[in-house]
């Protein structure tokens, strides 16, 4: 069981600090709060999932295998990641060097009434990823630790897995881009140019 530590990180500050260094990295978000958080920093290299809970890590894997020269970041919540623990085994077995997963972990299902998730009950997601053969894993609780970790997120040989423990602050839904076909086509056109429509 992971030792309980108090966190001082705000979810949007944390994701903002990570994405400030994104460069040409490709981003996949999980549904819910991480989708809204990333929406405040909208970018054509971001693919937002609004549904398919548990899909984020595997969408990231398919993208990372197809774009082996680009860094692929998956940003998702603890509830979404808990639904796909098997995907961590699949990714750990595949070992994509260019994939990094960041879990913005508030230990709550914030979309459905702030019920606690298993990460509030001692389940250590970074420990699961480590056991699943991820190349580098860690958990951060404050800005100093996060800032020290961000270069590893982008530069370490993957798969990388970072848990950012965040406070329970909830923000309003701040993204208006919902149409899945548009989100997909925008992403592909930004990445592939005219080949997006072959």
């Amino acid at each position: 069981m992971a030792r309980k530590q108090k966190t001082s990180l705000d979810r949007r500050v944390a994701l903002g600090a990570i994405l400030a260094r994104r460069g040409d990295a490709l981003l996949v978000t999980g549904l819910g709060s991480t989708c809204y958080d990333a929406g405040t920093l909208d970018h054509p290299n971001t693919f937002y999932l609004w549904g398919g809970m548990g899909a984020a890590a595997m969408v990231g894997l398919g993208l990372a295998l197809a774009q082996s020269k680009r860094k692929v970041i998956v940003a998702t919540g603890d509830g979404e990641m808990l639904m796909a623990l098997g995907a961590l085994a699949t990714i750990g077995a595949q070992r994509p060097r260019n994939l990094a997963i960041v879990v913005i972990d508030n230990e709550l299902y914030s979309e459905t009434g702030m019920q606690p998730t298993h990460t509030s009950r001692g389940v250590d997601l970074a420990g699961v990823a480590k056991a699943a053969s991820f190349a580098r894993t860690g958990t951060v609780y404050n800005r100093k630790q996060l800032d020290a970790w961000i270069p590893k997120l982008y530069q370490s040989a993957g798969p990388v897995f970072l848990v950012a423990k965040v406070t329970s602050t909830r923000y309003p839904m701040s993204i208006r881009l919902r149409d899945g076909t548009h989100i997909k086509n925008r992403f592909r056109e930004a990445l592939l140019g005219s080949k997006a429509f072959d």
């Binding site: 490709l26 693919f47 984020a56 398919g62 993208l63 774009q67």
Partner: peptide
């Protein structure tokens, strides 16, 4: 894969990547 649904999500990423 460990379960088939992983493959549906993965192939969405495959297509996103061209």
């Amino acid at each position: 894969l460990t379960t088939e649904e992983e493959g549906v999500a993965m192939l969405a990423g495959t297509w996103l990547g061209g």
